[in-house]
Design a protein around this nucleic acid. Sequence first.
DNA 1: GTTTTTTGTTTAATCGATTAAACATACATT
DNA 2: AATGTATGTTTAATCGATTAAACAAAAAAC
Lengths: 345, 345
Amino acid sequence: MNKKKVSLKDIAEKAQVSTALVSYVLNGKEKESRVGHEIAVKIKQIAKELNYQPNYLAKSLRSGKTQTIGLIIADISNPFFANIARIVEDEAKKNGYTVIIGSSDEKAEKSWDLITVFLNRQVDGFIIVSSENSEEQIQYLIEKNVAFVLLDRHFPTIPTHFVSLNSYKAAFDAGVHLIQGGYKNIGLIAYKSNLFHMQERIRGYRESLAENGIVFHPAWLKEVGFDTIDEEIKIGIDEMLASAFPVDALIFATYRLAVTGLKYINALGLKVPDDLAIVSFGQAEVFDLYYCPITYVLQPMEELGKTAVEILIHQLKEPHAEKRQILMEAQLMARDSSRSKAAIS
Amino acid sequence: MNKKKVSLKDIAEKAQVSTALVSYVLNGKEKESRVGHEIAVKIKQIAKELNYQPNYLAKSLRSGKTQTIGLIIADISNPFFANIARIVEDEAKKNGYTVIIGSSDEKAEKSWDLITVFLNRQVDGFIIVSSENSEEQIQYLIEKNVAFVLLDRHFPTIPTHFVSLNSYKAAFDAGVHLIQGGYKNIGLIAYKSNLFHMQERIRGYRESLAENGIVFHPAWLKEVGFDTIDEEIKIGIDEMLASAFPVDALIFATYRLAVTGLKYINALGLKVPDDLAIVSFGQAEVFDLYYCPITYVLQPMEELGKTAVEILIHQLKEPHAEKRQILMEAQLMARDSSRSKAAIS
DNA sequence: GTTTTTTGTTTAATCGATTAAACATACATT
DNA sequence: AATGTATGTTTAATCGATTAAACAAAAAAC
């Protein structure tokens, strides 16, 4: 990284003026600072000639702003989050911000680390997809007066800005969709997590049964641990199928659960949807490629990401505006994996 | 972002010494700068008490180093690159570096943008997955004496550090594998690209045929444009099947081509591998989930990513060491989609 | 023809950390 | 006692940009 970069001073010298003038001109403050017109033109010309690029570090040091956003996501290897990351990055760039991304891998500890590192890097604010038990981190940010928005997951008891999905409604719709298709014994595989959005998915599912007069059986709900999904999903599916009321349809509460579950369903030789109908949260190419396209809950990723950026940037400008809390609606994309029982020969 | 941060000066005042001493002590230079022992202890203690965190901006401005790496990948929505990104990030962090990621979406223009933005942000160096026709960018970096490593793709005519895959060998192996399985009419779907790794995949494929006495037919090779893969793949597959020598096996040169191609193969109602055997580059969950697990070329992602970081960091320490150019070997993971013809009933 | 205003430009402090060089003691050497 | 050598510590410049305040010269006001 050689070739000493062009600095304000270089321009100043070449134009035979002080750096102050150069700074005023290049920041469009000629008017307020009443810079002479010819000089202003000259400075602009020299700046262009030398291809001057201001030094962000110096700027940031002075201003206390880095024009950088820290994005902490729960799992970069999940295509949903990878996509969100890309959207956030694009949107931020449009607004003159750079994004630094970190993946917490669903671990509160890693997310603490990232917060520390990013704060050290003087990010202007955060967009966070929270992991379980990270409430104290959020409290910490609030106390420190750091700007942030929660994305995709939020804590109903902590007043923060957030943009997430109406998980209750989405799960409810998924349940109703299956019931209307003639399925009666509907299972749900979710994460064992106290995260609000997960609890809401469970609640929505149960409510869909209740409201349609279907008695819920405990074997139909399996909550699996993050670190043991492979084994637990197998156990869960086995139990659902072997129960006194064997399931004929199954909802997966996340993309990863679906992928793992479907592998096992394949291994068991079950035919979707004849033996088992499927609806899943999250979307991905996988669902298209499956021999029987998978019905899924379409999350408005583009909007989620863009809105998060928008809220954060607005917050940076007006730190004390009231909290914006947005719940977006998902859309159920019905495909073959949940086609009506009547339609199955 | 309130609560004025603790600075060196704060510590200095509290300890009644100059900032110089504080700096020496906290940077472990007590010995060289012969700082008094009691004072050193006192300073450390106060620093801990106040939970002092140095200001990276100031440090960087002074030192000219930001401890930041710019990672430019070709496509963040491709799980292969998303994974690489994660590996690079982890490895960099272990070495005290932060990574800023940008996706060029296979466009040279976007990649130019990213280079400019990242240089402005004073990254110490780059790890780049080049897009087509970006040679001049590479030349520019060389001229500017910027540290960088090419990852996964390189330009054989430009002397740079790089870590990539032995694409020729991998494609050759894929061809041989199919031939040994009894397949004789083998097609390849690749990108229409002058990128070296793509040309090498084509060369390896053709060589595998040639070396086994199979006459290559032009209809067997389809090169599709980045922006028109959907349509072109359909055309390509149609032509391969309708040709005078209809293919009984197909190699996809990348993950994305495979996903798109398999969708079409599904739509055509072809059975893998009975009607058509498949081998693909890249790996992903999709390949496990397919009704018939897909044979793929396993790239040593972990090593690719780690080595790239290692080379870059070494380069930052010793800018003039000779170029390290590494070609790693892929491993063919044989699965059902290419099982031997003899084994098919 | 002073005084005041306006216009145009420079000076210097600042952001926070680093570090060469200067300074000030104490101790050792002859 | 005079000089030299360690041992501690402070001063001040530096990285590059911003900006309040000081300054100077020209134009307007009385």
